[in-house]
Design a protein around this nucleic acid. Structure first.
Lengths: 227, 227
DNA sequence: TAAATATTTAACAAATCTGTAACATTACTC
DNA sequence: GAGTAATGTTACAGATTTGTTAAATATTTA
């Protein structure tokens, strides 16, 4: 099953280039030359990934990005911003709006491809299944219950969110900043040490007699779900 | 520390012009008049950027580009293609082969310069793969784990960073200053001898019974990851 | 609104890491 | 082979990071 990529780009040659190459790679490609149209068609088609040009005739790419990231139904679709500007500032803005990655034009197609693959791979576990397990830890997202060794465990809201996030990619190390961004979300006016406290509590909560700790600390890096 | 640019161009007048102007800008310039030679010398010299003529007597520029982009060791060096043709099609091909940029002759030197600067500035956000290996040493950047002969090894933060950096280009020798710059980063208010100490620690950490040392000292030059 | 729950911050102890200096060892030069 | 420069190694004081607790705020629930 090939992934579906939506390209928003107003410069035809570039759009042609992208479409041609992406299709050659086996992706299903849809595209739009302007922002307004793109917005509605993305919501309708729900592609697996969006390539979004920064500069568009009507709505700017950044606006589209913001709108998409506000919409519950499509907010999980990863976005790669394509920008002609190379300034650091812009890159930051691009990421702030919620884009998962950005590339500066002119870019090499192989590199773009690499990033696309990487994002699609990463997103896969985002197709959140109702149940996620890691070793003897189980989380049922429908009932929002958590089990350790068949025994139900009670978690506070943040603890639950934190675990819910960590379990999507066990063993992957997340920095405190990443956790704040993904688990806390919008109001990141929170000390990064706060994460530590919640990790401690989560640890205490999922800890059971005769079971492994399950949360690993990677000094000066962050945490991961792992025994 | 000025950047090193490699020019591949068979028309002598143009080559002379480019060399002269680039040197005047403070760049270190190497060059080659034909493709075969260029290929081997680029791999040997590892310049920071390559200016590559499209039309060459033997190997075409596009071939060179493809070869370079296939080679792990030099694939990250940005390439600017110089082409006399201006057709869209060529541009597409140029990008397909992995060139980061292209310019159509005749071009203005200031513009070329601007693009060179832009590319050089774009701090090679090397497409770091999740896993890197050198011989029996493996580093998994996702879980931030290091293995030697399948056995997990625990490294301190600096040791990890150091190895992470060294393994990007095995066998390449880095001076203590380069290591400080890339591994320590901003606060380079550190004695260069400090590097020695961390190298020692890293050596001890990755050392395993009956395995090769893996870190080479190059007297009065620096260190490299190599057996 | 009061009570119950959650969250954040601050504070301090414990664990671990880091840089430096001192001394040991190894290469290199003549 | 002596002398010199470069590198290896070690120990330790100081710095950083993390775990944990408790108290202060904020939020939700009844």
């Amino acid at each position: 099953m090939s992934a579906h990529i939506f390209v928003v780009e107003d410069e035809k040659p570039i759009l042609t280039l992208l479409t041609y190459n992406l299709q050659k790679e086996g992706y299903k490609v849809s595209s739009s030359l302007n922002g307004e149209e793109a917005l509605s068609r993305i919501k309708e088609k729900k592609p697996d990934l969006v390539l979004l040009d920064w500069m568009l005739p009507d709505l700017s790419g950044i606006k589209i990005c913001q709108y998409l990231k506000q919409d519950e139904k499509v907010k999980n679709i990863p976005i790669i911003m394509l920008t002609a500007k190379g300034e650091e500032e812009d890159k930051v803005k691009g990421l702030n709006t919620g884009a998962e990655d950005y590339m500066t034009k002119p870019f090499s197609f192989p590199e773009l491809l690499a990033r696309i693959k990487s994002l699609l791979k990463r997103v896969k576990p985002n197709i959140v299944s109702e149940e996620a397990t890691y070793l003897d830890l189980k989380i049922d997202r429908e009932s929002m219950k958590v089990f350790r060794k068949e025994k139900e465990i009670t978690l506070g809201p943040k603890e639950y969110k934190l675990l819910d996030f960590l379990i999507k990619q066990p063993k992957r190390v997340y920095s405190r900043e990443q956790l704040l961004e993904h688990v806390w979300g919008d109001d990141i006016n929170v000390e990064s040490r706060t994460v530590d406290v919640h990790i401690t509590r989560l640890r205490q909560s999922i800890n059971i007699e005769g079971a492994k700790p399950l949360i690993r600390t990677v000094r000066s890096a962050g945490y991961s779900l792992e025994n």
